[in-house]
């Protein structure tokens, strides 16, 4: 087995294991940490496929910003394993079963697709220079609009998170 394969399998096991950890752990903080590890594994996959830019962006944006945000919120609400609500066992079983059925159905549908080896010569596609060229040439408009999207998300988050002036007054 060559290096590529070993790397692939290690990263895969890491990813799947941490994903399971996310959904199985009772402490929310542990879930967050497992998810961070999952993101690292996926970034590893990106590097394996020479999508370097995306790998870095994945780490910075997802693991760095989004997950930290999650952690803040969990800390804010003081969630821990004691107050964690649990669904009934039957419902959990139904959920797992339906997820499994979905997995099997899609698997059956796509098992015969054409496959191609991933171990191919390194292409410059994933490099930041090429991505940038495409992004700012063909996708200028979506790029700009995504900035508007961020703006609206920021404003929205601020507005939603603001306390009622009346309620704030009452609290005071």
């Amino acid at each position: 087995m060559d290096f590529y394969s070993i790397l692939f399998w290690v990263l895969s096991v890491l990813a799947v294991g941490c994903a399971l950890g996310v959904i199985l752990s009772r402490n929310p903080v542990h879930s967050v940490l497992c998810l961070i590890l999952t993101f690292f594994a996926i970034s590893g996959h990106y590097i394996l496929m020479n999508a370097q830019f995306l790998a870095i962006v994945n780490i910075i944006v997802y693991a760095g910003a989004i997950m930290v945000l999650f952690l803040f919120v969990i800390m804010l609400m003081n969630l821990n394993a004691d107050v964690e609500p649990q669904k009934g066992h039957l419902i959990q079983l139904a959920g797992v079963v339906s997820g499994g059925i979905l997995f099997l159905v899609i698997l059956t549908a796509v098992k015969d697709v054409k496959n191609q080896s991933m171990e191919m010569p390194t292409t410059p596609i994933g490099l930041i220079e090429n991505l940038g060229k495409e992004l700012f040439h063909k996708y200028t408009l979506p790029f700009e609009i995504s900035s508007v999207l961020f703006l609206s998300a920021m404003i929205g988050a601020v507005i939603i998170g603001k306390k009622d002036p009346a309620a704030a007054h009452a609290e005071n």
């Binding site: 959904i23 609400m77 419902i91 959990q92 797992v96």
Partner: peptide, 8 residues
């Protein structure tokens, strides 16, 4: 489907 915590 399995969890009840909104954040999770």
């Amino acid at each position: 489907l399995t969890r009840r915590n909104a954040v999770i």
